[in-house]
Design a protein around this nucleic acid. Structure first.
Length: 666
DNA sequence: CTGCCTCGAGTTCG
DNA sequence: CTCGAGGCAG
């Protein structure tokens, strides 16, 4: 066999293997075999450069750079889609089409997720990838062929031999979310500006001058149709998708053919809830009339097809003005910057504030007061400021943490190597107030007293410490607006009843640095009572689970403080519990040694009921998934990260029915 | 020393 | 939920 025949054979084998691996998810050869063939091809090409063809897999990386991107006309313009945002608009669209088509015509639709990425036009000549353009203005785009070649899911050579002479394939290049996060981390590490969202990341990566940079970016593509085509005899859009799929193009697996607009509306609603379960961002659903004959009869209006719509949901990100950065001082003295935002709607709720974590984070993102910023609610509920919107900045000076505590005026400290600034003043009013809040709403969980009440009691100087809370009388409460006889009595009763909370909750509520729920519990179990804990040496403290030198020192230091010892004594006199009760000790049971994580909402239990039931049988319940987790109990609307983590770690997912079986109540 | 795992702390809106 | 950091095993 001549080396040119062998090179052609290798190209074909490797391209086929690439489609099977990246598009079909059904590898036909293992990685080692691929490498051997690849190396053989590379050697042939190195020996005789005339054997190199554009569709050779060796051309995916390191292709020659172009000075600038050439503008090239699309063979068929890339139009944009009319958008709809409501069910009514969807129905109106169909009514209008019915009028034009004749009311007896059945209309079938093809729907698929609308990927938030960068639209791309790929030209294939006799089945070979020849050129790829960005959408540009829809008439002409920029030639980014070398960069597109680096995307493994784009076939360099179509599968099958029936390729039309010229074919434009349209698709959306996107960056998967986990790749997006990783790419941003890498950029941040190099001190470079990060991408505000995956769409910008995809578009920006495609416009790299150096295609080796593009090659390093985790880009992928979903192909959604064709542009210019000749010699292709298909009658429906659905057939076209199948045709493309069979020839090695990645079409979105969630594309569906539906028989009525009612089904379309239902699917749109369904997907709005499921959108965050995908590994890429979608901002709506694209809906197309399936029949080409109907498409032709409907035609277009102002360059926009009458036979297609983009249903767009309320955006998950928005741009708004950052009016001010304010500081809140937490119960441990940490200074916490947060953003006062011009209220803006994101994903259906109005956002007016967001945490900014710490000074480093703010300056890494380069956020300044007065900037327009991008705000998002990614999957979860909690809004974040992603970064400044575009290059245009209004803010002038970079953010700086205040040098003195805004509440007590004491100079703030930032320990070497740590990220957070702290107010070192243990008498700082913020600590007292936040400690009280944490007691009322966390440790003791007192019904009928909330943040508002705590704040007013604080302001009126009625309650400034936990013991004062227990000395509060109904008469005093009545002086506050909004308290009547009944509510005051109920509140006092709830406060008094909370004296019975178990020792570990008291311990948690004392606000010892580095001691949260779990550590408090471990300490309570290990030492049994407060005296043993208070008098423990460093060495003895380290014996307890989860305690190392750092926490041991923090705990010892806290108990050395006279004010703190007085607090303990006072609470003890008031009748709070400082010994671990029998009922708090973990039980041996059939589930001892098992560790579960619960996510989402269960039908028959609250989360804490389920936890208590499992613990009763000896199981442990934690809230982070790892390889040590026995099983993740998945309820309705589960946390996405927990489910993916479980899948990655190979941890079994359990349903509520499985849980019942576990508890022996199946 | 390194890399997992776990815990702590702060968090938004309706 | 996410981030940072302490604990701990290998």
């Amino acid at each position: 066999m001549s080396s040119s025949d062998r090179a052609a054979e290798l190209r074909e084998l490797l391209n086929e293997a690439s489609i099977a691996y990246h598009v079909d998810d059904q590898p036909v050869m293992d990685d080692a075999a691929y490498d051997v063939l690849y190396d053989e091809l590379k050697a042939l090409e190195d020996a005789d450069p005339s054997l190199v063809t554009p569709d050779s897999p060796t051309q995916r990386v390191g292709a020659p750079l172009s000075d600038k991107f050439q503008k090239v006309r699309h063979l068929l313009p890339m139009g944009s889609l009319e958008k709809v945002t409501t069910d009514e608009a969807l129905q109106k669209w169909e009514d209008d089409m019915r009028k034009r088509l004749g009311t007896d015509d059945a209309i079938a639709y093809v729907v698929e997720p609308k990927i938030d990425g960068s639209a791309i036009n790929l030209t294939y000549e006799n089945g070979r990838f020849a050129r790829g353009l960005t959408r540009g203005d829809g008439i002409q785009g920029e030639d980014v062929t070398p960069n597109l070649r680096t995307i493994k899911t784009i076939p360099l050579q179509m599968r099958r031999t029936d390729a039309p002479p010229t074919l434009e394939v349209r698709g959306e290049v996107y960056m998967p979310l986990d790749g997006f996060r990783a790419a941003n981390e890498a950029l941040a590490k190099d001190g470079k500006a990060t991408w505000p969202n995956p769409r910008n990341a995809a578009a920006g990566s495609l416009r790299q001058k150096d295609s080796t940079i593009t090659a390093a970016r985790p880009l992928s593509i979903w192909v959604y149709g064709t542009g210019f085509r000749e010699g292709l005899d298909l009658e429906t859009h659905w057939e076209t998708l199948q045709w493309l799929r069979e020839r090695g193009f990645p079409t979105n697996p969630f594309a569906q053919r539906l028989e009525s607009i009612a089904e379309v509306a239902e699917l749109v609603r369904d997907w709005e809830l499921r959108r965050t379960t995908l590994d890429y961002e979608i901002d709506g659903i694209v809906i197309k009339v399936d029949s080409y004959e109907q498409q032709e009869r409907l035609g277009a209006l102002h360059e926009r097809p009458r036979w297609a719509r983009a249903f767009k949901w309320a955006p998950m990100t928005a741009t708004t003005r950052l009016n001010e950065i304010r500081i809140r001082v937490g119960r441990t003295g940490n200074l916490n910057p947060w953003a006062v935002l011009e209220p803006v709607e994101v994903g259906g709720v109005t956002i007016s504030r967001a945490t900014l974590h710490n000074e480093e984070d703010i300056n890494r993102k380069d956020i300044r007061e007065g900037d327009d910023v991008i705000v998002q609610r990614a999957g979860d509920v909690i809004p974040q400021v992603v970064g400044p919107a575009g290059k245009h900045r209004r803010g002038t000076k970079p953010f700086q943490m205040p040098t003195h505590c805004p509440l007590c005026g004491v100079e703030v400290v930032k320990p070497e190597g740590e990220v957070m600034h702290r107010c070192p003043n243990r008498a700082c009013p913020s600590r007292g107030l936040e400690t009280l809040n944490n007691w009322v709403m966390g440790a003791a969980d007192i019904d009928g007293v909330g943040e508002q009440t705590v704040w007013r009691l604080w302001q009126q100087e009625m309650v400034r410490s936990i013991p004062e809370l227990y000395r509060l009388t109904g008469e005093q409460l009545l002086e506050l607006d909004g308290f009547g006889e009944i509510s005051a009595n109920n509140a006092i009763a709830a406060i008094q009843a909370s004296k019975a909370i178990p020792f570990f909750r008291v311990l948690f509520g004392l606000n010892i640095p580095d001691v949260g729920w779990i550590t408090a519990r471990n300490l309570a179990l290990h030492f049994g009572n407060v005296d043993a804990l208070m008098n423990a040496t460093q060495e003895e403290l380290i014996e307890a689970e989860g305690i190392g030198p750092e926490r041991a020192e923090a705990i010892a230091e806290w108990f050395r403080d006279d004010d703190n010892r007085r607090l303990v004594a006072e609470l003890r006199d008031l009748g709070l519990r400082f010994e671990t009760g029998e009922e708090e000790k973990p039980v041996e049971g059939p589930l001892t040694g098992n560790q579960y994580v619960i996510t989402g909402t269960l039908e028959g239990f609250t989360r804490s009921e389920a936890q208590a039931a499992l613990e009763e049988l000896g199981a442990k319940v934690s809230d982070s998934v790892s390889s040590k987790t026995t099983g993740v109990i998945v309820g309705e609307e589960p946390g996405k990260s927990k489910v993916t983590k479980a899948e990655k770690a190979g941890v079994p997912k359990l349903t509520e029915a499985d849980l019942l079986k576990l508890l022996g109540r199946g």
